[in-house]
């Protein structure tokens, strides 16, 4: 197990507001990690900095030893919380787009998953339901051979049955040497697939722990602990 992602004293401010407040964190390879926190706690800001979409105000952030940039992006596959695909395209168009863009894109894997879900390469993105669009995007992201998969709210917009399927996609494509960092509010749906959780609040890390330790020490689920820690 080697350190995959490391941030030291990482801070991001938007004008007078501090979104990420001096976070130091180290994430190893080979884990599935839940990034959990209430709305506005800084989850997406942190994720955007990991992907080079936002620049830190201060502090450092490295992935596999590289500062955020072209090199780090080769290692990271990112599912944003909003879609960025051109909706006037067909599935096969976005697939060839991804294939051109990423050297590590596995065409066969993508086709295999699409087929299992009954999505045809000729299907138009525009005419798909929200849940199907989310599945297509997740398939694109999981079809890369990355070291780090960063999934921002991967199951937010889909029904419980589709949620199970999405978790199945994540588990079946998960390379034991890679790490998945995923943010969500739907803790009870995903907590059994996590190794670790990071609770984030007001831009600071409130708790970082293996999930089984929480169950052993507290005798409660991650979902219950979350509700207690962040009680309004």
């Amino acid at each position: 197990m080697s350190t995959l992602l490391e941030c030291k004293d990482l801070t991001k401010t938007y004008g007078p507001k501090t979104a990420i407040d001096h976070i130091s964190l180290s994430i190893e390879s080979g884990h599935i990690i839940g990034l959990l926190g209430p709305n506005g706690s800084g989850k997406t800001t942190l994720i955007k900095m990991i992907n080079g979409i936002l620049t830190p105000t201060s502090g450092t952030l490295t992935i596999a030893g590289n500062p955020i940039g072209a090199e780090s992006k080769k290692h990271v596959s990112y599912l944003p919380d909003h879609t960025y695909l051109n909706m006037n395209q067909k599935v096969k168009d976005v697939i060839s787009f991804f294939r051109d863009f990423y050297q590590d894109f596995q065409l066969e894997r993508a086709h295999d998953m699409l087929q299992k879900l009954g999505i045809a390469p000729e299907d138009n993105l525009k005419s798909m339901s929200k849940g199907t669009k989310e599945k297509v995007q997740l398939i694109l992201v999981m079809s890369r051979n990355a070291d780090l998969y960063v999934l921002d709210e991967p199951i937010a917009g889909v029904d419980p049955a589709a949620r199970d399927y999405i978790l199945n996609i994540i588990l079946s494509n998960y390379d034991p040497k890679a790490t998945i960092l995923l943010s969500t509010h739907l803790i009870s749906d995903i907590e059994n697939i996590l190794d670790e959780v990071i609770f984030i609040q007001n831009g600071q890390i409130r708790l970082s722990s293996p999930v089984e330790d929480i169950r052993v020490k507290e005798g409660k689920s991650v979902d219950t602990l979350f509700r207690e820690v962040f009680k309004c």
Binding site: G30, S172, I193, E212
Partner: peptide, 14 residues
């Protein structure tokens, strides 16, 4: 490990 983790919907390390 992989197949059973998938069937159970649990983390493969667990």
């Amino acid at each position: 490990v992989r197949d059973l983790a998938q069937e159970a919907a649990v983390n493969p390390n667990t």
